[in-house]
Design a protein around this nucleic acid. Structure first.
Lengths: 156, 156
DNA sequence: TAATAACCTACTGTTTTAGTCAATTATTAT
DNA sequence: ATAATAATTGACTAAAACAGTAGGTTATTA
């Protein structure tokens, strides 16, 4: 599985646009400055985000990027898969040819983990993150779009 | 976060020992052959697994490795953290200095994801995996040590 | 027509992955 | 005793991915 700064940067950048876009689109230069992410690196990421239809672009002065869909229609997993290609905890990528043409002994474990992660990340939308960000400072906060046994609690 | 073949190999190897150890300890050469993992690579992994107290070793002829604790006392996350150092989806490793000395906007998201993954992997023990492996072939199987909303179902 | 800002391609340094190789040490069977 | 076994250690390596740079081109607007 890959879950690196590439994906984190993409999520951060998307959230930045969601928070700052109003009448005008948001420039990568602005995101770069606010979030301390290299401009050229952002360009690479946004090339993919645009091809996946998550953002739309406007060229020229006053141009920039906009979120292309309703914020509630874009999940964190959409963003990560757009820039990172795959969220997959199995080594065979679901091909089940991990060991001697069959499924490796631990295949089910990774497949199951994989769907847990995907469940979670696809359950958190950009809209959720915007809400969350606006409520910031209210102490302990947790993303919990789906009810699940022991909820994680992040100390403030 | 890091969740690579290193961790997968370690889990597979530990499961192999758990399945094959009886009166005699299990040799790395045997694991290497059965699981198609390079012997030298296994040596590296087992150096760490031993230092973490997950396995004990016996040198000389008839020697090999044994699981050092009750199978139910060793979780998948124990194994992965032993060889991979960290399971951490936040970039700051919980230090909360991810952005300009404060917490980055997406900090809670990654922290929350992190604890979800850890919850899951620490809920699956070596004993669970052994049971699971022995029951193999019974069709659709899922690891579900903790009840949680939508259970992942892996097609057979 | 000049400034802006997206868009595109190629290149680069660093780290991690996934090993290899060669030697040493401890134990057991002969 | 000694030969075989098997863990243990350390140094080294090719390939990939990550994170970022550099330099240019194209479209749009003031």
């Amino acid at each position: 599985m890959r879950l690196t700064t590439k994906g984190r940067f993409a999520v951060t950048a998307m959230l930045d646009i969601a928070l700052y876009e109003a009448d005008k689109p948001v420039t990568l230069a602005g995101i770069s400055e606010r979030q301390s992410i290299s401009l050229s690196y952002l360009e690479q990421l946004f090339s993919r985000l645009r091809k996946q239809g998550l953002v739309s672009s406007v060229r020229g002065p006053g141009g920039g990027y906009r979120i292309a869909k309703a914020h509630s229609e874009i999940s964190v997993s959409d963003i990560i898969t757009a820039v990172d290609e795959q969220i997959d905890a199995t080594q065979c990528g679901g091909n089940e040819n991990c060991h001697d043409e069959g499924r490796c002994m631990t295949h089910e474990l990774w497949a199951s983990l994989n769907s847990k992660i995907l469940d979670y990340l696809s359950g958190v939308s950009l809209a959720d993150m915007v809400d969350m960000q606006r409520k910031k400072g209210a102490g302990t906060v947790v993303f919990a779009p789906r009810k699940c046994g022991s909820e994680a609690t992040i100390a403030a």
